Amino acid sequence: MRRTLRAARQALSPRQRRLAARRAALKLLRCPVARDCRRWGLYLASGSELDTLPLLQVLWRRGAETYVPVIRAEKRLHWVRLHPRTPCRAGAHDIRRPRRALPRVPSRALQLLVLPLVGFDDHGTRLGAGGGYYDRVPARAFRRPLRVGFAYHQQGVKHLPRDPWDVSLDRIATDRSMLWATG
């Protein structure tokens, strides 16, 4: 399933990807629960993932604090502050990350987490890239932040299997709609 969903994502032209990223950012930013969030955790897109740069640019203009995940040696995510001029480099899995070690915050200190995904369903089940990094975050850390999947509309499927350790989504922002997970 991952292979099929990635292929559909990669089949989009660069122009279609840019347009989709702007549309999904607008959908998320117009969502009432996101409007007042001041501390955001988001990923920096890799490969054909939906780009978060349009979202980041608006958040920076609004004065929001933005944090990105950094994978440490123990294969755990740590959230570090990202500023508009923070120099980045390729890290694990060729994912961009801040060049120098910056102060980090725990997941529970963030108000909204924008999560990458390969696929999703209406129940908030998230199919990730397969590394399990977001699933390793302790469940208690996910109590406070709202978890939003950020994806192309084409990444939605009717049903995904869910394991007990899978982190579920509260919302899904796509280029076509803002979806509320049905549980």
Rank of each mutant, 00 (worst) to 15 (best):
R3E: 15
Y152W: 12
G47A: 11
G63Y: 10
Q154C: 14
V70W: 00
T52I: 10
D121A: 06
S177F: 10
V70I: 14
T174S: 09
T125M: 00
L102N: 07
G131P: 06
T125H: 14
L113S: 01
R17N: 09
R62V: 05
L160V: 07
V137P: 04
I95H: 01
G91W: 02
E74H: 15
C37N: 06
R22E: 13
R126H: 09
E49R: 07
P14H: 05
R62C: 13
T182R: 11
L29D: 03
L160W: 11
Q57E: 14
I172W: 00
R143Y: 13
D121T: 02
L12D: 07
M178T: 05
T125Q: 11
V148M: 02
A21C: 01
H123P: 02
G130N: 10
P164F: 11
R18H: 12
H153P: 06
R140D: 13
P87K: 13
R162I: 15
I71F: 04
R126A: 05
G119I: 04
A7R: 15
R15G: 10
D51L: 02
T66N: 11
A181R: 02
H153M: 02
G124F: 04
A25P: 04
H93F: 15
V114H: 11
R99E: 07
R85P: 00
D36M: 08
P69L: 01
R38V: 15
F120N: 04
L50D: 13
H159R: 15
V33E: 09
L127K: 05
A8M: 13
P106F: 00
T52W: 03
R9A: 14
P87M: 08
L102I: 04
V114W: 12
Q16W: 04
L82S: 05
D135T: 06
R81G: 01
V148F: 05
P32S: 08
V70F: 03
L113H: 04
S107P: 12
F120R: 00
R108Q: 14
R136Q: 04
L127F: 08
P106K: 07
G149F: 09
S107A: 15
G63V: 09
K75S: 05
A151D: 03
A90N: 02
K27Y: 06
R61H: 11
R100Q: 11
R147L: 12
L112R: 02
V70M: 01
R147A: 09
L146R: 11
A90G: 03
P98R: 07
A7N: 10
G47Y: 11
L146H: 05
